[in-house]
Write a protein that binds this DNA or RNA. Structure first.
Lengths: 228, 228
DNA sequence: GCGAATATAATAGTATTACTATCAACATAT
DNA sequence: ATATGTTGATAGTAATACTATTATATTCGC
């Protein structure tokens, strides 16, 4: 990852936090260590009290940054998708051939996150694992419509919209570009989860990647050549 | 739905419950009303105490049937997929043409559940909605590997396996039958959720159904004719 | 019809969770 | 020197997720 990224700050919806965690050392520590702790013990077992012990700070101090752990998860998800969108736009910018552009976008979106780019204090490898395991829980809640109105899902929606538009650029007659795009975004997380825990439910493994599966799917669906 | 179904009892993994809820009136009431209550208030807010009030029974009595609400969710999911598998096998049985068979299976799996077949005390319309909203939470947990070993996900795995085999019957050269099958199963739930809460992320709506989207996807991917 | 076994209800109790409130300590900015 | 903001420490509350015990009601075998 380019060194340039280290100086970029992702813009976050201000309603996601009580106090901007980027504005202090404690805030950054909360974000950094919450990712590691949720990854270790799972979102259900994760509490602000446990995080407080881990960062040698106080439960009440964490509440000054995030209302509750659900909002923290929304924040982390928003961060992840912001990072993903940035990489996607960066990687596809300047590609004029629609097929190549779509292929590149799918590649970035479905690729395994293998190394921590040290883009700020966030470990993207661990965050990626967290998103695979916990992202669904951020929107599968009764409050989803209000939270959607509050703009908490803006970024991942924009990614789906971008992919959908690229699909249309490649094949304007294809009738389901949005559904295909959202299926790839969500399906990627799911395929990684299956590869880890239900290997009999997926063809993805060490040799076959979700990138190959979804790239192939797109090519077949839009009737393209694999070398497009 | 055929009247025959009323007399069929779905076989459940005995480890899912402490005491078989099918074995008593209270047990059936627990299953019946838990579906309605979870649908109303969401899995996070659902407690055995609240269910106890609703069925005018005691919290501790419910614990005699299910260890905790997570196990109850696993039970309900298992019931749902058992019911789905039954319908799928029933509907495809006797179809010898592989393409027609696959098409029928996808149709059953992706179709909107519109009427309560009154197959026992379970309201399938509500259960379907519950599965769309809560199913992911049943396996996105730290204990997933142990619970998989305990066989809690056997039925949905078998459905994926069946679809995968049907895909291979249609096109033996297609390299990702398992991933395609699991993408359809999970993707269907996701598309219904999006249609309800994020209409801008899907093409599915009152006119376009997930069945159409996924049937089209399968046809394009396996290079078939729509009238196959 | 009676006693034994079983199912359910009622009550109480515990540890943890998910917070809220208050106040003190410290740093910084003016 | 004083006001302001940040963090830490402590305490407290209501709800959750159970477990345990005892009482009561129902059912079954004989």
């Amino acid at each position: 990852m380019d060194i340039l990224m280290k100086s970029v700050k992702l813009e976050m919806n201000g309603k996601l936090y009580v106090k901007d965690p980027e504005s202090s050392d404690l805030g950054k520590k909360i974000v950094e260590q919450s990712i590691l702790l949720i990854d270790e013990i799972g979102f259900e077992c994760f509490t602000f009290k446990k995080l407080g012990v881990r960062i040698q700070s106080n439960e009440s101090s964490i509440y000054r940054y995030f209302e509750n752990k659900h909002k923290l998860l929304l924040y982390l998800a928003s961060w992840y998708w912001g990072w993903m969108e940035y990489r996607m736009v960066f990687a596809t910018n300047g590609i004029s051939n629609p097929e190549k552009k779509l292929k590149k976008a799918i590649e970035v979106l479905t690729q395994n996150v293998e190394e921590d780019s040290s883009f700020s204090h966030v470990n993207e490898v661990v965050l990626n694992r967290l998103i695979i395991n916990e992202y669904s829980k951020s929107y599968l809640v009764k409050e989803v419509d209000q939270e959607n109105k509050d703009g908490y899902f803006t970024i991942s929606k924009r990614i789906v919209s971008r992919i959908s538009k690229m699909i249309q650029e490649v094949d304007g007659s294809y009738p389901y570009p949005l559904s295909l795009a959202s299926t790839i975004l969500e399906g990627t997380l799911h395929q990684y989860f299956l590869a880890e825990h239900f290997p009999k439910l997926t063809d993805c493994n060490q040799k076959i990647t979700p990138t190959q599966f979804f790239t192939d799917l797109i090519f077949r669906t839009l009737n393209l050549k694999p070398n497009g």
